[in-house]
Structure formats: structure tokens, C-alpha cells
Simulated assay, not measured.
Amino acid sequence: MADFDNESNIEIVRKATRELARKFDNNYWLDKDNKHEYPWDFIKAFADGGWLGAMIPEEYGGIGLGLQEAAVMMGEIASSGGGMSGGSAIHFYVFPPAPIVRYGSEEMKKKYLPKLASGEMLTAFGITEPTAGVDTSRIKTKATKVDGGWVINGQKVFITNAQNAHRILLLARTAPRRDDKPLHGMTIFFAELDPKHVTIREIDKLGRAAIDTNELFIDNLFVADEDVVGEVDKGFYYIIDGLNPERIVVAMEGIGLGRAALEIGTEYAKNRVVFDRPIGQNQAVAHPLADSWIRLEAAERMAMHAAKLFDDKQECGHEAAAAKYLGAEAGFEACDRVFSTLGGYAYAKEYHIERLWREVRLLRNAPFSQEMVRNYVSQQVLGLPRSY
């Protein structure tokens, strides 16, 4: 474990996690992607280093670091070649526990957080539903009160890790939707993924094949009262509390993907000779790569600025949204430009660009679209009328 006494925490984390992540090279991730195989040995390496508990308080087995350090770690994982497969593998240990850390009972924290920090327990996060889209207030998954707990019925979609997770932070309606308070009446449950009551179907998808994405069909799943996170009916507000960190980290993962591609593209441009000169000598090749470096650097500065505001307990919603937007755009542009730099070779899996390109494209749509970022900024920052 790194020594956090003498050097800047951020630089210690950057150096240590870069060194660890790069032990798993592009060929490792290509193999996992081809086989649709969960990267357990990669996770174990980060668990052994103590990194899975980066944002879990020390009294519950974690390191107790801030969002700045966690964001840097996720950026290094993505830029090592791990991309979204490596990012998601660690992301779901570090960030889904946040509602438990902030709002869970002391009993819940003591029971579950050490297992999450050590890697003994893997979680999934269940919000999205097929009929609700980005309007979470219209989810239909319902929890009904019974003696000693709740019985949940409903459906979730695009749920990461459900094939391997032990439990899921599950958002369900505990009161009917009200037009005057549409986001009230939803509760977070830390539910066991009991195969007798939860049917999990994997979604065949474009990228990030090493990490499963699923549909969930929930039929009379019982959750004890002790596994309710925080207060009943206030679950959505707890999720909102965690959206800014997620946006910042997604930005850093997009930036990392772009840097992984840029590293490959720059090396190729130096060594690929056409018409007796390296193609990187041509401005049509060099300038787009240089532009991508500039945009990736700028995006990271916005993301780290937002992370510092969060760590300092200041409002950071505008900056977090801007960071997600810039990280997704800069990451995709870098991968796309390197795709063009390699020409036909970009289609060959051995060069890894097609894998990075497939993964980074997701970030323009998830966890929320670039259009929704522009909607948010238009309304909340510029004061324009709501357009949706």
C-alpha cells in the first residue's frame, strides 16, 4: 500500500495505480474482450493493493481518499489500455457503495463496507428501466411493505455486473408518483440477487464485452428492513447526491481512453512510412493528434476542478456536467482520429483501436447523453426555458 504521508496524495495515487494497471497490457484486455471473460485477476491485483476501498472510510476497511484521488485512479486504469472494461471492473467497487457510506445505518456499514473494500463482495446498481428512459420519476419497479421488510417486483435494464454481483443497490417505488413531487416516493434497497426471484439476461452489445450488461426481471424479491438504505421514499435524493462524482469519474475514464488511443496513434505515426516519410510528418496527420492532446488536457483540468470542489464540499454540479461532456467528446475524438491515422489497420484487433473506439462511444450516451448535458447547462447555468 502506498505511503500517503510525504507526497501529494493525488500524485502518489497516479503513480501507484499507473504502475499497477500497466501490468495488464492491451493484449490482456483484448483477450478478455474476445472471450467475454470477467477480469478477476485484474480486480484481485487492485484489491490486494487496497484500492477497491479508495473512498470507503478507514474505520470500515477503506483508505478514505477523496474524489480527486479516485478520479485519477480511474483515469489511469482507462489510459493503461483497460478502457471501460478496466474502468467498470473497479468503478463498481468504488462508487456504488456511496449511498451506504453516506446514508446507511451503522449496522449496514459495519456489515457490508469491509467486504466491499476487500473485494469480497461485488455490487450492481439498478436504476434504469426500459419504459422510463432518463425520466427516473416514472420507474415502475415497486416495493410493497410486508412484515419485516419489503417485496419487490419489476424490471431493470442496462445493469452492469449482475452476472457476477452478490447484491444490488436497487431503486424502487415505495409510494405512487405525484405530479407535484415526482421524485419523492422512491427508496434504495441493498438487495441480494437471489436467483429464485431475479432472472438475469445478458445483453449482447457493441463494446466492453469483458463486463456484463443485463436485463433484470424481479419477481417477489424479499428485502429485509435492515437492508433499506437511509429513509424510505428519499432514495432518489440519495442517488442525486452521487451523480456529480459519477460524472467526474466518467469524464476521467473518457479522457483515459483517449490517451490510450493517442499513445498508440502517435507511435504509429512516428514509425509508419509512406512515400519515403513517416506519416506523422504530414500536418493532416499530426494536427488532429495535437488537437486531441490539447482537448484531453483541458477536459482533465475541468474534471479535476470539479473533483476538488466536491472534496471541498462546494457545489460542483455545473462543473461536473461540463467535465462529463468534455471528457466524452475529447475521448471519442481522440479515438476516432487515431482510427483514421491507422487507416485500414485500425480494423485489426491487434492494434487495439477498434476496441477503444467501441468502448469510448458509449460515453456519449451514458450515464446520460451529451444532449441532456446541454439541456442542463441551458436551463441551470444560462437560465433559458426548459426545453424537454
Rank of each mutant, 00 (worst) to 15 (best):
V285I: 14
Y325L: 15
T136G: 04
M1W: 01
D194N: 15
F189D: 00
E192S: 13
W293Y: 12
F310Q: 07
Y268M: 09
V146D: 05
L363R: 03
A71K: 01
N153G: 09
N6R: 12
G50H: 10
I77M: 08
D291C: 02
E319M: 01
F46A: 04
T144E: 13
I264G: 04
R102S: 12
R247T: 07
H184N: 12
D212M: 01
N365R: 13
K270D: 13
N161V: 02
M108R: 07
L262M: 09
V274K: 14
I90E: 01
R386K: 15
R102V: 04
T213C: 06
W357M: 10
D219T: 11
H184K: 12
V232N: 04
V13E: 07
T187I: 07
E106A: 10
A334T: 01
Y268P: 06
G149S: 10
N6G: 06
G83V: 09
S378E: 08
S79D: 09
A54H: 00
V146P: 07
M55Q: 07
H166Q: 15
Y388T: 13
E76T: 03
L296A: 07
E263L: 12
L193I: 15
G344Q: 09
A16K: 12
V157M: 14
A251D: 02
A71H: 01
L170Y: 00
G343R: 13
N27L: 11
G207K: 02
Y237F: 14
Y351S: 12
Q380N: 11
T131C: 03
S378W: 06
H318W: 03
E350R: 15
W150H: 06
R208P: 00
E11S: 14
Q163E: 13
F275C: 05
G87L: 02
A165Q: 05
